[in-house]
């Protein structure tokens, strides 16, 4: 039985954000934007979707008198990401047979 791919993660930009966040403890919005080559507007929308799904935590604070957004993957996000990768591997194994 195929596991269904999580629709929240099966989007290029959201998956890129989650892949970045799974490798770090936390990352600033500017860093994510630079690494994903996304526009600020598009990235904000996708981050909001991930936040609503409970996959990431968004911390807004001031750094050197400027607003600064930091994102952090949640435990729920880690589980969802692991499940997504497992499902992908299943698809790939079937494809190779």
């Amino acid at each position: 039985m195929f596991k269904e791919l999580d629709p929240i993660l099966h989007s290029q930009l959201r998956l890129a954000v989650m892949s970045l966040l799974i490798s770090v403890k936390e990352a600033e919005f500017t860093f994510i934007k630079e690494k994903t080559n996304a526009t600020a507007g598009n990235l904000s929308v996708q981050i909001q979707k991930l936040k609503e799904a409970g996959y990431i935590e968004v911390i807004k604070e001031f750094k050197d008198n400027y607003p600064n957004t930091t994102c952090k993957i949640t435990t729920q996000g880690v589980s969802a990401f692991e499940e997504y990768v497992k499902a992908l591997q299943q698809y790939l194994n079937i494809g190779q047979q």
Binding site: Q12, L15, A16, S19, L20, S23, T36, V85, Y91, L92
Partner: peptide, 20 residues
């Protein structure tokens, strides 16, 4: 990076690897 684009399992894994 476009918001929504159809991509297959292999491309997903490539994307994960490249971001890491």
């Amino acid at each position: 990076m476009p918001e929504e684009k159809e991509f297959n399992s292999e491309e997903s894994l490539q994307l994960i690897t490249s971001m890491i």
